[in-house]
Simulated scan of single mutants.
Amino acid sequence: MRRLNAISLALAALRHKPLSTFLNLLLMAIGVAMMTFIVSASSQLELGASRDANGIDMVVGAKGSPLQLVLSSVYHADIPTGNIPASAQAELAANPLVAGVIPLALGDSYRGYRIVGTTVDYVRQYGGQAASGVVFGGAMQVVLGADAARNTGAAPGSRFAGSHGLMAGGEVHAHAPYTVVGILRPTGTVLDRLIVTPVASVWRVHETDPDEAHAEQHEHEITALLVRYASPLAAISLPRWVNSQTRLQAAQPAVEAARLFELVGVGADVLRAIAAIVLAVACLSMFVALYHALEERKTDLAILRALGAPPRKLLLLLLAQGLMLSTGGAALGWLLGHMGVGLLGQMMVGQQNLALSAWRIDAQEAWLLPAAVLVGMLAAFVPAVRAYRTDIAATLAHT
């Protein structure tokens, strides 16, 4: 019953100073929201990047930026570095250090979703299974990832023409329409955002394009090769051999992804530091508010003591106020942080980049609530001890 009274008194005290209560809640919420956003977004991006690159040891493409090659060929989040001869696939596949090679032919899209010329092995690489229809079997047949199918409205049996370029709005290849033969189940990988077809489809579209009438005179080209090593020795010798070729470049997704997240991590560390400063300011603000409230209500507290309230009741009263402010601010901040992740996820979905879920809870978030509670208790500790040591006679004598 005494605890209930302390809580009731704490609520009444907070309601008595609505502006101060709101500002303290807001400061705490901003700090926790920033922490939640950083932890959730960064962990999901790293997990998604790791999942998309799983099983791909090396990417072979045209000379240029290794990071750009990985982003364009593994994550489909950048433009390719160029094209390479299709004969490079057979060369690599014949190497005993290579366990598997998957070709990619990029260049077209449909309503902003990339059309990827490849083999059925690419679908298997990400555990793709047909939710309806079948996986493609011949040229000009396509299967759509779950997100691409949902947002384009395509279904088995429908036909469409791709457009030139990897973004919506390019010139339409109306002379060579594709036929949808299947829709894939959601995999939680980059496959969900792609339209997949045999490499021969991409060649056919461009060989019969009126603007590329002489394309058939040249050797077939592809954009990149996804390579899986047969032994650890390949990691040492294969990239070196590939890079010695005139037109080829090797990039290792694990290395490039680590480099990318190292760069991104610097910005994340800065944001974490800012969030920590905000939490420290929230702690200081809460301390000042509770301390001033104690000074203003010394007489009230002394009267409570005179009426028989034990010292621990006053201690609990101030601690309860700090606990309510910190817990309420932490809960509000957690919600705001995840709403921010969801908003960023919607923006990234619109650009067909890595997907983020608003309400995916990361294990690292477990420390946020205890940390916020600790901040609140620290802020309330000194005022609570002063309330505990209230001198009834001296306080009432000065009123």
Rank of each mutant, 00 (worst) to 15 (best):
I115S: 05
S109A: 15
V143A: 06
Y126W: 15
G107T: 06
D121E: 15
R111P: 06
T119H: 11
R150W: 04
Q129F: 08
L144W: 00
Y110E: 11
Q125L: 15
E91S: 14
Q141Y: 04
E91G: 15
Y110G: 06
G112C: 13
G117C: 08
G112L: 06
V134R: 15
Q141M: 07
S132F: 09
A90L: 13
A88I: 07
N95V: 06
L92M: 10
T152N: 00
V101F: 03
L92R: 03
Y122W: 11
V116R: 07
I84L: 09
V98Y: 03
T81K: 02
A90D: 15
N83V: 13
R114K: 14
G128W: 05
G145H: 07
D147S: 11
G138H: 15
A146S: 11
V101N: 02
T152F: 02
L106S: 01
R111K: 15
A93C: 03
A105T: 13
Y113N: 03
S132C: 05
Y110L: 09
G107P: 04
A148W: 00
A139F: 04
V134K: 15
A99F: 03
Y110N: 08
G112F: 12
Q129A: 14
V101G: 01
Y110W: 13
A93Q: 12
V120F: 02
T152R: 00
P103A: 05
A131D: 12
A130L: 14
A86Q: 10
Q89S: 10
T81Y: 01
D108H: 14
Q141I: 04
A139D: 08
Y122Q: 08
R111G: 05
V101H: 01
A86I: 07
A130T: 10
G107H: 03
I115D: 02
A148V: 01
G112T: 13
Q125Y: 13
V116Y: 05
V123Y: 01
G138I: 11
R111N: 14
V98N: 00
G145Q: 05
A88W: 00
M140S: 11
V143Q: 02
P103G: 07
Q141K: 05
V116S: 10
A90R: 15
V101M: 07
S87H: 04
T118V: 09
Q141C: 04
A130K: 04
Q129I: 10
R150I: 06
N95T: 09
G117F: 01
V143K: 00
T119M: 12
M140G: 06
Q129W: 07
V143H: 00
G127V: 04
V142K: 02
A99M: 03
M140P: 07
I115Q: 06
G127N: 04
G112V: 10
I84G: 00
S132K: 12
N83T: 15
A148H: 00
S132E: 14
L144R: 01
Q141P: 08
Y122F: 13
G112K: 13
P103K: 03
G127E: 07
I102V: 14
R150H: 08
V116I: 15
D121S: 12
D121Y: 05
I115C: 09
A99R: 04
Q141R: 09
L92K: 02
N83M: 14
